[in-house]
Design a protein around this nucleic acid. Structure first.
Length: 425
DNA sequence: TCTGGGGTCCTAGGACCC
DNA sequence: TCTGGGGTCCTAGGACCC
């Protein structure tokens, strides 16, 4: 008897595993990977977790402790992680009838088989990724996405399962027993706020929620949590991504390595961020109709933090870096208060559509030529590197003082010829 | 001194229309 | 001055995720 099931495969401590794949000295050692600007801990090896390092911990607070325990530190290397992710996803895709890449290190996969075959398949997926890419994964298999997430959670926390858990191979009473011990907030889709409200109703474990009345849950909470209840009981009701619409917004936002206090520097930020946004639009084949620019002051400084933002309707659907850069700078002029210290800036492109729509070029000749500048910039960057060319203030050859800090970065092992690892025998 | 970034979906409420 | 209901579209904000 063959049944349709959903597998959820994710890489263990993904960023750390990518670093280890190219630096075996890190295996067995406590390792952490930091966020942009080397600000917070975003990934930890099991050894680092065991030492009590938490996700989101500010690096400057735990630096000394880490040093005294011989921990290794890496800045985030998104070129490497993005490329490793693509390789993992490709290997996984060979084993399923459909695939939904859910995040940089996670994928849902449509699988079929009887209970025994499903368990074997999960083991084969794990071995294939380990051999083909060199990173460890866990696999959960179940009738719904929510249960597949749960099964994956079990696989990760029980070493004797060897990274694999298929609910069809388990006794229903055993599953129920586990579910009554796991807190409901460990469930996919149930966060702190909802968890607190559920606790008020006496619902604290996954088993409690599974046995709750779905229609009551909808009345007291939302259709989202009702779906979770149904999925816990084996009824699939969360759609696949490919059935959902295209991306709805593109965001480029970063904190600065040191505060920005002048209008000139902020305009430089906007010019560069708008060009990044335009490049993403072109990469996705989308045109934006709305532009939002924002600035932010520190949440940790004395006084109230502020996050001023302004949204404007673009004169036409566009992916043009010149137009976006110009408008973002103009909007930022309205926002910036001289003398205020800004720690972050951002550009959001929304109202996305898959074509430029009806273009009315009118009398402005230069608008026509602008349309090709993005392509030229993209081509030059592809050939000569990211820093080869840029517009206006974004074209400066020297990195501006506020740009991101990455003091502990590993090389781009898989995406730069000059960074290729060398093996000697 | 130093505290991440980029998304999704849903709901409520207002504006507007007939 | 009084007086209806139903529908759509849009936006802001909340909650959650990795």
């Amino acid at each position: 008897m063959s049944t349709e099931r959903i597998a959820l495969i994710d890489v263990n401590n993904f960023y750390v595993s990518c670093e280890r794949a190219f630096d075996p000295k890190l295996v067995g050692r406590p390792v952490v990977v930091l966020s942009n600007n080397d600000g917070c801990v975003v990934a930890r090896s099991q050894e680092a977790k065991d030492l009590g390092i938490t996700t989101g911990a500010p690096f400057f607070q735990v630096k000394q402790f880490m040093r005294s325990h011989g921990m290794a530190v890496r800045s985030s290397n998104y070129e490497l992680y993005g490329d490793m992710s693509a390789r993992v996803m490709e290997v996984i895709s060979r084993f399923g009838s459909w695939q939904e890449v859910y995040s940089i290190d996670e994928s849902f996969l449509g699988v079929q088989g009887n209970p025994e075959q499903l368990g074997e398949l999960a083991t084969r997926i794990r071995a294939a990724v380990g051999q083909g890419v060199g990173v460890p994964v866990c696999v959960g298999v179940a009738p719904t996405k929510t249960l597949a997430k749960f099964a994956n959670h079990i696989a990760k926390r029980n070493e004797h399962l060897n990274g694999v858990c298929s609910l069809d191979s388990m006794d229903p009473d055993v599953i129920d027993g586990i579910q009554s011990r796991v807190p409901v907030t460990d469930l996919w889709g149930v966060g702190g706020k909802t968890g607190a409200k559920l606790a008020g109703l006496g619902i604290t474990s996954i088993a409690d929620l599974k046995r709750a009345e779905a229609t009551e849950i909808r009345k007291k909470f939302s259709v989202v949590l009702q779906r979770t209840v149904l999925e816990l009981n084996g009824t699939p009701c969360i759609a696949h991504a490919e059935e959902r619409a295209d991306k709805q917004q593109i965001m480029y936002s970063r904190s600065f390595s040191s505060p920005v206090t002048t209008l000139e520097a902020m305009l430089e930020v906007m010019s560069i961020y708008a060009q990044r946004g335009a490049a993403r639009l072109m990469g996705d084949g989308m045109w934006a109709t709305l532009l939002t620019v924002s600035a932010g002051t520190s949440r940790f400084a004395a006084g109230e933090a502020s996050f001023p933002a302004v949204t404007l309707k673009l004169p036409r659907p566009t992916q043009d870096p010149i137009l976006l850069s110009r408008l973002a700078s103009a909007a930022m002029r309205e926002l910036v208060v001289p003398g205020v210290s800004y720690v972050r800036g951002g550009v959001v492109l929304s109202g996305l559509q898959p074509d430029p729509g009806q273009q009315s070029f009118g009398i402005f000749e230069d608008e026509i030529s602008e349309n090709h500048v993005g392509d030229v910039l993209g081509a030059v960057k592809a050939k000569f590197g990211d820093k080869a060319i840029g517009l206006g203030l974004g074209g400066l050859a020297v990195e501006p003082g506020w740009s991101m800090k990455r003091e502990h970065s590993s090389p781009k092992f898989t995406t730069e010829w000059s960074d290729l690892p060398v093996v000697r025998a």
